[in-house]
Design a protein around this nucleic acid. Structure first.
Length: 312
DNA sequence: CACTCAACCTGCCGGC
DNA sequence: TGCCGGCAGGTTGAGT
């Protein structure tokens, strides 16, 4: 469900309400929510007791909370992915349990709990070791102030998400490398935008919105994009995600919420997504919906002409 | 190696 | 009212 703006909104909430606190107890209510934690639910819960939570971090749509013991530097983290319907909520202990409450964290200060609630259980949590920065990350560290999440200790990310690319709002994102990757690919532009190993944080909503802003059709073969077109695409993605972030993300229903249970307001700013039949905000032509990879794609047929050699 | 697509879940909505 | 198909913001891993 959530894409970069929604996940980043949640990350900021975790930073504010959870970082710096010490975990007292963890209760796993549904094993599927921790299926990625290979050692199982009891181990997941046991190894978090008495651990202090560090700064909330994010890579693409993944979130993690480093957890340390005593004064030692955190060597592992609670890694979270919200999937399609996951929520991380900070709530008073006397709040009634949600129907789809999967994991509950209580803290030594006896204050608000952290709850992982997930209707469809595509999301999940795991305790994962933090790995030292990769080559690409080391390159980024040579530029002071280039760390997107403000961690002064440099990049350490969970090894299991090392394949996830940086997102377009990350100062260390390499535009030229992204353009070269597009040129090498033999797929459609929208597929490439959704490929989290090429560029992260973009999902079905913001892919369509970025393409509309760039006046490009998602079925364009990636290698046919010229440099201005590729730059427009990145600019479009950055603009739409920055705007959405400022509005607290997109909420079609009560499924996407921040840690305080509130939805964002970006839905009303969407140009194409979910607007089939409604007029294009630029030219008035009715927006068109097409089936794409068992989901939907929304385009303006006039602003985004379908290529002769379509790839999707 | 590059690429595609079914599968993993629950709930809601519209049509019959 | 109820049943059924279609659809929903994502990722992985098996298969081509």
């Amino acid at each position: 469900m959530p894409e970069l703006p929604e996940v980043e909104t949640v990350r900021a909430g975790l930073q504010r309400w959870v970082s710096g606190r010490t975990i007292a107890r963890v209760a796993v209510a549904h094993p599927r929510a921790v299926r990625r934690h290979v050692a199982g639910g009891p181990d997941f819960a046991a190894r978090l007791v008495d651990r202090r939570v560090g700064p909330a971090r994010r890579r693409g749509k993944y979130l993690w909370l480093p957890v340390g013991a005593g004064d030692t530097d955190p060597s592992e983290a609670v890694l979270a992915h919200l999937g399609m319907s996951g929520q991380l909520l900070v709530q008073e202990p006397d709040t009634p349990d949600q129907l789809h409450l999967r994991v509950r964290f209580t803290f030594t200060d006896a204050g608000r709990e952290l709850r992982f609630v997930d209707q469809r259980t595509f999301g999940g949590l795991a305790v994962e070791p933090l790995r030292a920065a990769s080559g690409a990350d080391l390159e980024a560290e040579q530029h002071p102030g280039g760390d997107p999440n403000g961690d002064p200790d440099g990049e350490r990310i969970p090894g299991v998400i090392a394949h996830i690319a940086r997102d377009p709002l990350d100062p260390a994102f390499d535009d030229a490398a992204f353009r070269r990757a597009l040129a090498r690919r033999r797929t459609g532009v929208k597929r490439a935008l959704l490929d989290q190993t090429l560029v992260s944080g973009i999902g079905n909503i913001y892919a369509d919105e970025a393409l509309w802003r760039a006046r490009l059709h998602g079925a364009r073969p990636t290698e046919t994009l010229n440099r201005p077109e590729a730059e427009r695409l990145l600019a479009g993605a950055r603009e739409v995600m920055t705007s959405a972030l400022a509005e607290g993300g997109t909420s079609f229903d009560a499924l996407y919420v921040n840690v305080n249970g509130q939805g964002g307001y970006f839905e009303r700013s969407l140009a194409v997504y979910g607007r089939a039949g409604l007029p294009c905000r630029r030219c008035g032509t009715p927006i068109r919906r097409d089936a794409f990879m068992n989901r939907s794609s929304f385009t303006c047929p006039r602003c985004q002409p379908r290529p002769r050699r379509a790839r999707w």
